[in-house]
């Protein structure tokens, strides 16, 4: 069966990262079965762009982030970053490449070494890569800490547990910036934070992105958060991409039924409009035995026989707006494929 298509990939000299047919599988014990975590997805990110990856738990969004970083080698597909193929790199080459692509994780407290001083944690990448003199390193770290809103003097004498969750996330961000990377993959960076702190961290990321000329991949399950920070959003479901669109377009005209569900599930902070019915019943099926055809068909209100047998391909329905659905909410029915006409 084909992947979800590559119609949405762009041919531009500005492409910083290009992922094609990325596949990640996990074996299930000795059963011979496998978890199809990511099933042949393709995506690209332009320089200076923020790509949002959104979906429920288990849709493969974090695994995609980790596979791009080669933290887990993907089972198939290619990842080209700044013109270099990452999947074929040796461990040493990959370590070098990771100085230019960094990652921020969901739980800020457990991603920092609890026994070290915060300032040393932020400085460590510079020490490992022997960048600059001691004085230069110190100046750089102090400047970065101040930039993310952490007092460098306090950081010099405190350990992570002496900071709040929001502050620890700021420290993680400072650490990710210290080697001057071009790409930062943010895996649910604000999901563990209070709404008020979440807003502070999102604003901070926007500021840093502008100042340091960063490109971001922002992974989250909350579409409102993703929409706020992203230029382009890819919606994932059960290891596949079902819709790619500019963030404002995705909200104004969701085409995939799953995107609509995600949008409707966001609690509206207004008691007058909040009395809506549950948008969707049940939870995603197991990625060990994903349903044939469109993977969303068991939960989709518009599913028919075609959705249960033929996998929809990504196709363009508007400027930069791509959907993998036979019966999308906008953009018309998908053309009947050659295979089905031949069968008929």
């Amino acid at each position: 069966m084909a992947g979800t298509g590559k119609a949405h990939l762009r041919n531009s000299p500005d492409v910083l990262l290009r992922v094609e047919d990325l596949t990640v599988e996990f074996p299930v014990g000795r059963t011979g079965l496998k978890v199809n975590a990511v099933s042949g997805i393709s995506l690209d990110v332009l320089r200076g762009e923020t790509l949002g990856l959104v979906g429920e738990s288990g849709c493969g969004k974090s695994t995609t982030g980790r596979a791009i970083m080669q933290l887990r080698r993907p089972e198939g597909g290619s990842v080209v970053f700044e013109g270099n193929e990452l999947t074929k790199m040796t461990l040493a080459e990959m370590r070098e490449a990771r100085t230019r692509m960094q990652m921020i994780f969901q739980d800020p407290i457990s991603s920092l070494n609890p026994r070290r001083k915060v300032r040393d944690i932020v400085m460590e990448p510079l020490t490992i890569w022997k960048r600059g003199s001691n004085a230069e390193r110190a100046t750089k770290v102090d400047a970065l800490l101040s930039e993310v809103g952490i007092d460098p003097d306090r950081a010099a004498e405190s350990q992570p547990h002496q900071f709040s969750g929001g502050q620890c996330q700021r420290i993680s961000i400072a650490r990710s910036l210290v080697l001057d990377p071009t790409l930062i993959i943010c895996d649910e960076p604000v999901s563990a934070l209070d709404v008020s702190v979440q807003a502070q961290v999102l604003n901070l990321l926007e500021d840093l992105k502008a100042k340091h000329g960063l490109t971001l991949i922002f992974i989250a399950h909350d579409l409102a958060v993703v929409k706020n920070i992203s230029d382009r959003i890819a919606v994932m479901y059960l290891g596949k991409i079902c819709e790619v669109a500019p963030s404002d377009g995705l909200y104004q005209q969701p085409a995939h039924h799953y995107t609509k569900v995600l949008l409707d599930s966001i609690p509206v902070p207004d008691p007058e409009v909040a009395l809506h019915k549950v948008a969707i019943e049940g939870e995603p099926p197991s990625p060990v035995l994903p349903p044939p055809g469109c993977r969303f068909n068991p939960r989709c209100p518009a599913a028919d026989d075609r959705c249960r047998s033929e996998e929809p391909q990504l196709r363009e329905i508007g400027a930069g707006h791509f959907v993998a659905c036979h019966h999308p909410l906008v953009g018309g029915e998908s053309p009947v494929s050659v295979r089905t006409t031949a069968d008929a």
């Binding site: 709404v195 008020s196 979440q198 807003a199 999102l202 604003n203 926007e206 579409l223 409102a224 958060v225 929409k227 706020n228 920070i229 992203s230 230029d231 963030s247 404002d248 909200y251 949008l263 966001i266 902070p269």
Partner: peptide, 13 residues
């Protein structure tokens, strides 16, 4: 401080 879907993307929170 809650991000609103109606707002343009990249609006300052």
């Amino acid at each position: 401080s809650i991000p609103k879907l109606e707002d343009q993307s990249h609006s300052r929170l």
